[in-house]
Nucleic acid binder design. Structure first.
Length: 572
RNA sequence: UGAGGGUUAGUGUAGUGGUAUCACGACGGGUUCUGGCCCCGUUAACAUAGGUUCGAAUCCUAUACCCUCAGCCA
């Protein structure tokens, strides 16, 4: 499943968090107790294949598949493909890939609304025969005008009283392609004066002379969501049809259609969609970011899409845990993106091997270390998991440390290296800075240090302590890599609230570092390999751009950073 | 009220007449060869106003605020 150098995708054993109770589970338990559906639980995830899945869909996926698993039911994957103008096969493929990656399995329950087009047509005919639907020949504009407003009732279409026979014939002609697009639609005959606008003779079928990605040119009329969705649920004997809050108003119509046709009747239950701070989750906005090249594509590591999270280095388990932790309720809410970051740190802390890598190298020469000697130092692979063993790291006279780990004039609470100071090099020796070398502009370009041979391995026999331990890499042995540092794509906590959400894009959302120095073992890292660069964060070899001879690492998330907080406070 | 939903610490969430839950965050401390992890502690909430009740986040009434709906999108 995963290569020798990849980790986490399908094997992560991070224990799933306990699912807190929620109102949907209470409904299901009640239904189980009363035998409403003979103890069955059948849910479905019904994406329209018109875009890539994002973290908000992950919430729905985890909910539907999770609930069905919990109650020994089934969960269907159904593509709601009723609008050929917007949908295509690229999206149906990516959606399946993403659901699988998240760790869910629909088994043989893969369905397409388009598979039901014949039956849906028959249901529409039945409605006409019952005099509960009619063909309206008004234009779209006329229909809009006659719908009324939020406060005023609508008025009846002049075509509302066509006979059953007339409607049947007209609907057949629509199907046969004898009308142009827009010439007429099929409408439910409900009530143009209904206080609920949804119920003012909603459109059931419209004419679209477009090839469909599955049915090709077989149809030129396509059912609307409200007609297709409830009947698809009914056909599949869904028990609990979960959807987001904005469909609450549509439930009245969902129920009306199923009641009118007197068919199997699932119950629709609405929950609040996910909002995440510092990100946008509307399909329209995400597609805009892609099309206007604000990001490199749907799978740009800064995107909240499943494919973006995957490429960034998130594990499926971390996304699932996130979806459990955020809970399910009916009120609009915005989850702090810090929770998502917590979830990936939690997972990777337990599973990711530790490694040393220097992002912004500062050359260090150990003056009293032999010129051509290389020592092998023992390093623990993961202090959280002894079974992950240890490795050898070469140590030699010329090293790199992080530029941030040295200050010529250290402020209070800066524990790292400075002139005359002694620190520990992780798994190696104590070193003391004896000299600072600068270029003409005054920039520090090299440090001269001495090491204490007695501290090999990292402990001083005389018991003396140092306040800091630094990561390092041997210059002559280091592997070079490009490292991409990511931050939030947006600076605004709620970009969608801005006049133009793109104006709140973060200019620093990606920073590319070219000649980073990594410990030599990383030279063979396969794409998808995740690890912790000690003291810096969790990183993942890019699944598209990285190769063993051309390393590219994405920073998934930083480590929690106390020093960064102290620095911030000191600035104030 | 045109109609339908919603409102519990900074954020998310539990609670369904009997001590307001848990998590994230923030803050402080301990531990530490990662300023990580881990451990301990602090912080901080029932939208408002009435009512019922021995007792109300929970039941009732009113008010305020937020969200959704006027696609031949989903």
């Amino acid at each position: 499943m995963s290569g020798s150098k990849t980790n986490g995708d399908h094997t992560s054993d991070t224990s799933e968090v306990t699912v807190p109770p929620n109102f949907i589970r209470y409904i299901i338990e009640e239904d189980m107790a009363t035998g409403k559906y003979d103890g069955r639980v059948v849910t479905r995830f019904p994406p329209e294949p018109n875009g890539y899945l994002h973290i908000g869909h992950a919430k729905s996926i985890c909910l539907n598949f999770g609930l069905s698993r919990e109650y020994n039911g089934t969960c269907h994957l159904r593509f709601d493909d009723t609008n050929p103008g917007k949908e295509n096969i690229e999206y149906v493929n990516s959606i399946q890939e993403d659901v699988k990656w998240l760790g869910f399995n629909w088994n043989d329950h893969l369905y397409f609304t388009s598979d039901y087009f014949d039956r849906l047509f028959e249901y529409a005919v039945q409605l006409i025969q019952m005099n509960k639907a009619y063909v309206d020949s008004q234009s779209a504009e006329q229909i809009r005008e006659n719908r009324g407003t939020l406060k005023e009732p609508g008025s009846n279409s002049p075509y509302r009283n066509r006979t059953v026979a007339e409607n049947l014939a007209l609907f057949q002609k629509m199907k046969n392609g004898e009308f142009d697009e827009g010439a007429c639609v099929l409408r439910a005959r409900i009530d143009m004066a209904s206080p609920s606008i949804i119920m003012r003779d909603p459109t059931l079928y419209r004419i679209r002379k477009l090839d469909h990605h599955r049915t090709n040119d077989q149809w030129c009329i396509y059912p609307m969501y409200d007609f297709a969705h409830c009947l698809s649920d009914s056909i599949e004997k869904i028990t609990h049809s979960l959807c987001t809050l904005e469909f609450k108003n549509n439930r009245e119509l969902y129920d009306w259609i199923l009641d009118a046709l007197d068919v199997y009747h699932p119950q629709q239950i609405e929950f609040a969609r996910l909002n995440l701070s510092y990100t946008v989750l509307s399909k329209r906005k995400l597609i805009e970011l892609v099309q206007q090249n604000h990001v490199s594509g749907w799978d740009d590591p800064r995107m909240p899409t499943i494919s973006g999270l995957r490429r960034r280095g998130y594990t499926p388990a971390s996304v699932r845990n996130f979806c459990e932790r955020i809970g399910v309720a009916k009120r609009d809410s915005t989850v702090d993106v810090a929770l998502l970051e917590y979830c990936i740190r939690e997972d990777l802390n337990k599973t990711a091997p530790r490694v040393m890598g220097v992002l912004n190298p500062l050359r260090v020469v150990i003056e009293n270390f032999p010129e051509d000697l290389t020592e092998e130092m023992d390093a623990v692979n993961n202090p959280e998991d002894p079974t992950m063993g240890s490795r050898k790291i070469p140590f030699s006279k010329v090293l790199y440390i992080e530029q941030d780990d040295f200050m010529e004039d250290p402020p209070k609470k800066f524990f790292r290296l400075g002139p005359g100071r002694e620190v520990r090099l992780r798994y190696a020796y104590f070193i003391t800075c004896t000299d600072v070398i600068k270029d003409d502009s005054g920039k520090v370009v090299e440090l001269r240090c001495t090491y204490d041979p007695a501290t090999r391995g990292g402990d001083a026999p005389d018991g003396r302590k140092v306040k800091a331990t630094l990561h390092w890499v041997s210059a002559q042995h280091a592997a070079s890599a490009e490292v991409r540092l990511y931050e939030n794509l947006f600076e605004a906590e709620n970009p969608a609230a801005a006049d133009d959400f793109k104006a709140t894009l973060n200019d620093n959302s990606v920073r590319i570092l070219k000649d980073c120095k990594l410990e030599p073992g990383l030279g063979s890292a396969e794409p998808g390999f995740r690890c912790q660069f000690e003291r810096l964060g969790y990183f993942c070899a890019d699944i598209k751009d990285s190769a063993p001879d051309n390393l590219v690492f994405n920073r998934i998330v930083t480590l929690r950073d106390m020093w960064a907080k102290i620095k911030k406070q000191q600035k104030k």
